[in-house]
């Protein structure tokens, strides 16, 4: 029997903190199984050995923030059969999308001695704004079990079991009490996509929205409750919406609704 060629996997980085790539290295027990099933062709975080494309699967971390990025992601798309955007940067623009609410030239002028050397785009944008993305895996960082699930599903031609419902579903599944109802803590869980196993609420903290908006997020109703029932100031509501997924449409729009509200 001829040996079937192992699928070639590449891991790419754009504007990001490398945390999602580390989730792959963090797989530990599963990592050997992954390398047994795929050939790691490009993964600079792990190895300097680089194999030429094309690639069967490309995992893309990071957002597009420079004209060079915008060009490079097109080349990667052309060299990839199946492209998965991983993490909040790649799927929503990341924390660096906070620049989208301001003038990036002011930032560069404030930070760099010679801002004229900086060639950057006005906005930090997700991969899907530039090329076709086959699958988006959310999270800041992504959940390693979800990553293994996506790779397993790809390898065996099945649908990945990655739900798009709220964090509340996972919170109740693990039996954690609701921090909003039981403690009056503002929590983004009801409007945030599951995937983290409700990590923060399980430890008594409100959800920070790391996985971005859930499938049908009613951010207006949630933030109205925060404001009217939990006594949260508009500026605090805006800050809660403007973190890792500030660039996502639902969180961006709702945060803009609180833009000019006064405390």
């Amino acid at each position: 029997m001829a040996t079937k060629r192992k699928p070639r996997l590449a891991v790419w980085k754009f504007a990001s903190c490398d945390g999602c790539q580390l989730s792959l290295l963090d797989c530990e027990d599963e990592l050997l199984a992954v390398t047994g099933q795929v050939e790691i062709a490009y993964f600079l975080e792990a190895s300097r050995a680089v194999l030429e494309g094309p690639y069967d699967v490309s995992l893309v971390e990071g957002s597009i923030t420079t004209p060079g990025d915008a060009e490079r992601i097109r080349e990667i798309r052309e060299a990839s059969k199946f492209l998965v955007a991983i993490g909040a940067c790649a799927t929503a623009g990341g924390i660096q999308a906070l620049r989208n609410f301001a003038d990036v030239r002011e930032f560069t002028a404030a930070v760099y001695a010679h801002p004229e050397y900086i060639d950057t785009l006005k906005r930090s944008s997700p991969i899907a704004e530039h090329v076709f993305v086959d699958f988006e895996l959310r999270g800041c960082p992504i959940n390693k079990y979800q990553l293994v699930e996506v790779i397993s599903a790809y390898l065996h031609g099945r649908k990945p079991n990655i739900p798009t419902y709220s964090v509340c579903m996972e919170c109740k599944l693990r039996g954690a009490p609701c921090v909003m109802v039981a403690a009056g803590i503002a929590c983004l869980g009801p409007v945030t996509q599951a995937g983290c196993q409700a990590l923060c609420p399980a430890y008594g903290r409100g959800c920070f929205g790391c996985y971005g908006p859930m499938e049908t997020p009613n951010t207006a109703a949630l933030t109205a409750w925060w404001r009217d029932q939990l006594g949260m100031a508009p500026a605090a509501i805006q800050r809660a919406l403007r973190t890792y997924n500030a660039g996502s449409e639902a969180f961006r729009k709702e945060s803009e609704a609180y833009e000019h509200a006064h405390d």
Binding site: L173, P217, N218, A221
Partner: peptide
């Protein structure tokens, strides 16, 4: 409505489930 599903999860009679196959 937040469509978060909490009402169905705390309801003592809501019984719906889904089936997931994994490899």
């Amino acid at each position: 409505c937040l469509t978060c599903g909490n009402c169905t999860l705390v309801c003592p009679t809501c019984f719906c489930f889904t089936i997931e196959d994994t490899t």
